[in-house]
Design a protein around this nucleic acid. Structure first.
Length: 599
DNA sequence: AAAAAAC
């Protein structure tokens, strides 16, 4: 049962075959150019380009109809455990149109059985204690099981293949909201099951309305859903997950991001795309080349929106959403995910969303004891040897030769290279990831880390957010970030999905501005705060460099639309208050607007 | 100040 909590863990399908771009599987000559047999999954959602050659669907109206029914069988039968429904997605021949085999996205899933033992003793009910807050008009009720959601057989089977048994909090709320067609502004983090929370309704929605007529414009792809994310690796990860959710549904997922040759991505797009996952820069490029049109978009999801704004993507995002051919709010469904809610994000929400529901979900493990946080005073010159001591001690602790993964964060790209080199020279199997490495190197490094080939990964903040790497046992903040939000994101790479994690930070006099926020955060997470850190914290003026961009906002889990009626005494944005934990008012009988404690 | 992201 522990496995059930590992909501996003299979994202680790990390070995050679998950390298992007995915090569089409080999098709034997006698099967090439074969017309689509009725038993094949009809590409009812296929791109216009391809449909062009599809006039010969022959009995296609039949087969589509059949599929439509098949696809819907599960919808009506929701009450009785959708998991048991067999066959509904009966096109399980594992092929895409044209006889191209649909790669089994599950085949590389790591056998996690050995982790069962590690997990014993963890309080999985932690999931039930996570604070959740919703506001808005007519908020649909949350669900407690997948079975009570009308997702359809095909999707239910994939949920089963993913070994999900119970929806996570963000899924319990976000899925019914999205299925009801509502716009959503959600505060939740990867690792909370967020990706599934927006993918399930999108896939389900596409399956329910299979007859979208898309224009025929040569070489232009018309996706029905667009998912934007800040980093290339995150886009890849979302793509991998979405592939699993949409396996054998006929829904096509394509990923587009920079740093990789565009030609393969163009080819994938020409084969048809329903869900496009992209980083903003590459998408703008594709739009300007008119290789993608957004005019058929029915679903728009923005992941890690605050991160995208931090990275200066606002102009691109606004261009994509407001200045191209995307349908306006109300004509599409928009899901906005962000860890924090500074004013910029709130503006984005009011511009992109229509009559939205606000959802804030506490993070698994942030204020629980899933992540043990330690701070050590380490002089700059001692950091390397100290790190190697830690790694050495850790190696002693490893059981079954299973090396726990260690993620080491540094401040600069140069520093990452240097530290990686130093570790390797000293016999520690390390690799590194940062923005000066080629995309190929980045993906290779990530793979090698995930598979345990090099169980030490030195990283800049490119890896700080969103990446879901299972089995990260230890996060080391070799260089502390200057922003407590970044710290929270970094340590969030461990202690994921109900597992214990360890986070160690090296602190010295160059981190003075972090003393207070760090001490506060640790205290609120019931961590032991070293006396010396408390002294530093007392000495350092509060705030420091914190959160210029947010105007001093800590996690602003507040629906700003309520601002006028709700404005007294709670300075989530004032910064004089209680720092980073659960707002003092939380649990104190205080109701609306108060949400969870993380970020 | 550094990091990320299109060519």
């Amino acid at each position: 049962m522990s496995a059930t909590m590992r909501t996003s863990s299979w994202a680790e399908s990390a070995d050679a075959s998950s390298a992007r771009p995915v090569k089409p599987a080999y098709v034997p000559p006698h099967l090439r150019n074969r017309s689509v047999a009725p038993a094949e999954p009809p590409s009812f959602v296929s791109n216009a380009n391809e449909r062009g050659l599809g006039g010969n669907w022959g009995g296609s109206s039949n087969s589509r109809q059949d599929f439509g029914n098949g696809g819907r069988q599960g919808y009506g039968s929701g009450s009785g455990g959708g998991f048991n429904n067999r066959g509904g997605a009966g096109m399980g021949v594992g092929r895409e149109r044209g006889g191209r085999r649909e790669a089994n996205p599950f085949e590389n899933d790591v056998d996690e059985s050995f982790t069962e033992q590690e997990n014993t003793g963890i309080n999985f009910d932690a999931y039930d204690d996570i604070p959740v807050e919703t506001s808005g008009e007519n908020v649909p009720a949350p669900v407690n099981t997948f079975a009570e959601i009308d997702l359809g057989d095909a999707l239910n089977q994939n949920i089963q293949r993913c070994k999900y048994v119970k929806p996570t909090p963000v899924q319990r709320y976000a899925i019914p909201i999205s299925l009801a067609g509502r716009d959503l502004m959600a505060c939740a983090q990867t690792g909370s099951g967020k990706t599934a929370a927006f993918c399930f309704p999108i896939i389900s929605g596409i399956l329910r309305e299979p007859y979208a007529q898309r224009p025929r414009v040569a070489r232009t792809a018309y996706p029905l859903a667009l998912i934007l994310s800040p980093t290339r690796e995150l886009s890849c990860q979302i793509h991998d997950e979405a592939k699993k959710f949409s396996y054998q549904t006929g829904v096509k997922v394509v990923v587009a991001y920079g740093g990789a040759p565009i030609t393969q991505q163009l080819r994938e797009l020409e084969r048809g795309v329903d869900i496009l996952v992209a980083t903003p820069g590459r998408l703008v490029d594709l739009l300007e080349r008119a290789r993608v049109s957004l005019q058929m978009i029915r679903y728009l999801a923005l992941d890690e929106a605050d991160r995208m704004l931090d990275m200066g993507f606002e102009p691109q995002i606004r261009k994509i959403v407001e200045q191209m051919d995307m349908p306006p709010p109300g004509m599409r469904q928009t899901l906005l995910f962000s860890a924090t809610f500074p004013k910029e994000i709130q503006r984005l929400a009011s511009d992109f969303l229509a009559s939205y529901i606000f959802l804030a979900v506490g993070r698994v493990g942030s204020s629980t004891d899933l992540i043990a946080q330690r701070v050590e005073y380490v002089l700059e010159s001692d950091k390397r040897s100290h790190l190697m001591d830690l790694l050495h001690a850790q190696r002693e602790n490893d059981v079954n030769g299973k090396q726990g993964l260690t993620l080491v964060f540094v401040e600069t790209k140069k520093g990452a290279d240097a530290l990686e080199h130093c570790l390797c020279v000293n016999g520690f199997p390390a690799t590194c990831i940062h923005g000066d490495r080629t995309q190929q190197e980045r993906e290779q490094a990530l793979r090698s880390f995930k598979t345990g080939n090099t169980p030490i990964l030195v990283a800049t903040d490119v890896a700080a957010r969103g990446l879901d790497i299972p089995r990260v046992a230890h996060v080391v903040n070799f260089d502390l970030p200057n922003d407590i939000d970044d710290y929270v994101h970094r340590i969030g790479r461990t202690g994921r999905a109900g597992k214990m994690g360890l986070a160690t930070a090296f602190f010295n006099d160059s981190n003075l501005s972090m003393a207070k926020p760090l001490a506060d955060l640790m205290q609120e997470a019931n961590q032991e705060v070293p006396a010396w850190l408390t002294r530093y914290a007392a000495r350092t003026p509060y705030g420091g460099s914190r959160n210029k961009r947010t105007g001093g906002a800590r996690f602003g889990g507040r629906d700003v639309r309520k601002e006028s009626s709700y404005n007294k005494g709670n300075d989530y944005y004032g910064g004089t208050g209680g720092g980073y934990g659960v707002p003092a008012s939380y649990g104190g009988g205080y109701g609306q607007g108060v949400t969870s404690a993380w970020d």
